[in-house]
């Protein structure tokens, strides 16, 4: 066992961490631009998982069973519908409160989170929804003392999808005028407006991108665990939020790094100590990090804007 077992945990932890990272990007992006924690973000992830399940069942009943094709269609379907959710949430629940006191949008976000959970519960039922494994099997990397280190096709698919999405996202933020506008708004919203950037639209686009990434994470979660319910958004949301804070809220590479760390901590703790206390481990490490690095691992000390 020993090394092989640890290697297996590393693979599992990175897979889980990638899903957290995708969600965390949405938290950190919204925080960066309007300084608010979007508590409904985890529930957009849950909606994305349900949309994926609906799309996969629909495609199966239409006879489209080629796995890569079905996954690609599902990904586009879930990401675009969830993007619409994200845009609507911002438009309805947050934009009217801009310029209000700081807690108002936060409370509105909690309300939105509960609304989405109940919406999913009422429309889809409260029971756990299973999905038959789409990509069974995998590669056996190495065998040691009766323990086989396996890299499943599913884990490869998750890694490829995540790296691809984050690649597109990074290109969008660093290379396009839209990304430039987002970064400008993140640094000084009012000034960006004075230079002619439509800040409301830019904020809307931020929510759209965050929601699309969360929905992709929802699809990956559904594929990985094979079961979802209306409550998954809460736990995954809190974990991803923790990841964003751990990496340094407002920092995009920090969100991904934080996601990977939380995934690894959880997995290794479950493997070597106890599954019941895995969340305690993750949150304790968050608390310890924040005591010594209050801005997170990659966060910068923010100069208060005048």
């Amino acid at each position: 066992m020993g090394l092989a077992y640890a290697l297996q945990q590393l693979i599992n932890g990175i897979t889980l961490g990638m899903i957290y990272g995708l969600i965390a990007v949405g938290y950190t992006m919204v925080y960066g631009i309007i300084g608010m924690i979007n508590f409904a973000h985890g529930d957009v992830f849950m909606i994305g998982a349900f949309l994926s399940l609906i799309a996969l069942s629909g495609l199966a009943s239409l006879g489209i069973t080629a796995v890569p094709l079905a996954l690609a269609i599902t990904l586009v379907f879930a990401a675009s519908l969830a993007a619409l959710y994200g845009w609507t949430i911002e438009r309805v629940a947050y934009r009217p409160l801009r310029g209000s006191f700081r807690l108002a949008p936060l409370i509105s976000a909690i309300g939105m989170s509960i609304t989405l959970q109940n919406f999913a519960q009422v429309s889809q039922g409260a029971r756990v929804k299973p999905l038959a494994p789409l990509l069974p099997g995998g590669l056996v990397l190495t065998r040691a003392g009766g323990f086989a280190v396996q890299l499943s096709w599913m884990q490869i698919a998750i890694a490829v999808t995540t790296v691809f999405c984050l690649g597109v996202f990074t290109w969008l933020v660093t290379r396009t005028p839209l990304g430039r506008a987002m970064r400008a708004c993140e640094q000084d919203l009012k000034m960006a407006g004075l230079l002619g950037i439509d800040t409301d639209r830019t904020i809307g686009v931020t929510f759209v991108i965050g929601a699309a990434l969360a929905a992709i994470a929802g699809l990956l979660f559904l594929l990985y665990y094979g079961a979802i319910d209306f409550y998954i958004g809460f736990v995954a949301g809190v974990k991803a939020f923790t990841a964003a804070v751990l990496g340094g809220i407002g920092s995009l590479p920090g969100a991904v790094l934080g996601g990977l760390l939380i995934g690894l901590i959880e997995t290794f703790w479950s493997a070597y100590f106890s599954v019941q206390y895995k969340d305690v481990a993750a949150f304790s490490i968050l608390a310890i990090t924040l005591v010594f690095l209050p801005t997170g691992l990659l966060g910068r000390v923010d100069v208060e804007k005048v």
């Binding site: 005028p177 839209l178 506008a181 400008a184 960006a192 002619g196």
Partner: peptide
């Protein structure tokens, strides 16, 4: 300086 030219750039995209 490019941020200040966001409007014509976005129209072109």
């Amino acid at each position: 300086l490019l941020v200040a030219q966001h409007i014509p750039l976005m129209a072109a995209t």
